[in-house]
Design a protein around this nucleic acid. Sequence first.
DNA 1: TTCTCAATTTCGTGG
DNA 2: CCACGAAGTTGAGAA
Lengths: 256, 256
Amino acid sequence: MTGFIIQNPTLEQCLKAVKMGIGARRLLIMLGELRVDYFGRGSSELDYGERLLIVKSDGSLLIHRPTNVEPVNWQPPGSLYRAYVKRGLLVLEAYRKRPEERVKVTFRRVSLVGVYHLKDEAEFKLYTAEEIMKKAFIKRPDLVEKGLRVVLEEKRLRAGLVDCFCVDSSNRPVVVEFKKDRASVEAVEQLSRYVDELRRGNPEVRGILVAPSITREALERARSLNLEYRRLDVRSCIRVLESIGESVKPLEYFEG
Amino acid sequence: MTGFIIQNPTLEQCLKAVKMGIGARRLLIMLGELRVDYFGRGSSELDYGERLLIVKSDGSLLIHRPTNVEPVNWQPPGSLYRAYVKRGLLVLEAYRKRPEERVKVTFRRVSLVGVYHLKDEAEFKLYTAEEIMKKAFIKRPDLVEKGLRVVLEEKRLRAGLVDCFCVDSSNRPVVVEFKKDRASVEAVEQLSRYVDELRRGNPEVRGILVAPSITREALERARSLNLEYRRLDVRSCIRVLESIGESVKPLEYFEG
DNA sequence: TTCTCAATTTCGTGG
DNA sequence: CCACGAAGTTGAGAA
């Protein structure tokens, strides 16, 4: 990792570092007192305050306040930049075309500016909860219902992509939809759209919503739409997969 | 803004700064070569690479790679921390209960550690595209249909919050729902839930989905549910509001 | 490019 | 604390 950092830089030092850092596609970090104006898909305004600004090597812009995971303002990769000094203020503009959007950052004071070149080639591996549930269900359909048989691991309908298409012990088609969290009315509606489409061809089609829990409203709506609910949580699925020797998480995790 | 920064710190300096920074609810910034393991709602693994780590004063954790707006790993506000040195490696663990989640960061090298106290009291003001559309519609309902009259700017139903409740020139009730982007099947379903609820009391109730465009499937579903669609885009709304002297964006914006 | 859906979504608001 | 819906959602994958 190569780079440099300047504490309490002059405006000129700062402007130079910013232009160099962004131009050379480095990571730019700035701490200072700044305001932000945004206009594009929406429109926002944020008066002066002390914040952290980051420009990444792909042109992403992030402005972080002292709290929250989400940046208060941002600009996606590929944004174009313009930096200048005007009336004693350092201005950084990030521009994006399609959709047309602009973020303008005005610094009243800069406490820190840093430019670094990061090397990061590692591959990010993620297992989502729904993947885990589905994987376990495919191995052991009886987790949801005895006699169930998986026909298709996914099925594309006009209404969307069905999680699992099965038949039950009486040969009735069954659409299975997984939710890792408590199932909401939205989830029931989604399953309903799939089942509706298939019931036009065969009114016998069943729909099962599989989730660790379900809201009262969602259960009511499911009943009125003749859909079913089965309880299943991610933790049980992990146990099942581990018991049959399937890896579901990075090994050697939290040994300490 | 008060704080300090250490370049190429020793492990001990680093550990001390980390504990102090997080303990005192400051902003902690670290640049170094690190790996990340996560387990909770999902599960992820990321081998060593050069990245930026941030812990905010509310306990949020962010780990950023050199590209993308989104952090590769994170932990929400209120997380609890544990830091220690083990076999020459600096480890930082962020823990969250409910849902139970852990992020473990292992540093092989630290190039920079900084601790700062930021003061940021400003209020963030955001105008969303839907707000702009609704505002324009309330001023000029004929943007959607001649003779329409707004009765309630919002109306709470069991099914949710209706954008606008109106009556048409024949005194039929009309539910209006705005979407800033191309309207999807989801949007139609949402409007359908509102209208269904009201049609139980009065089968004459109309539902109009207002959006810049609509998908083929959504339009079909709207027709089959006896709902209507009217084209309206945000840009026209902004023009309308500006023409009647309503502010829709921060003033003095991008004067240069 | 456009569309469709998932996300460790996050975030706010109302009950 | 739970439920629900919006977001400048972002991001990936398929048509």
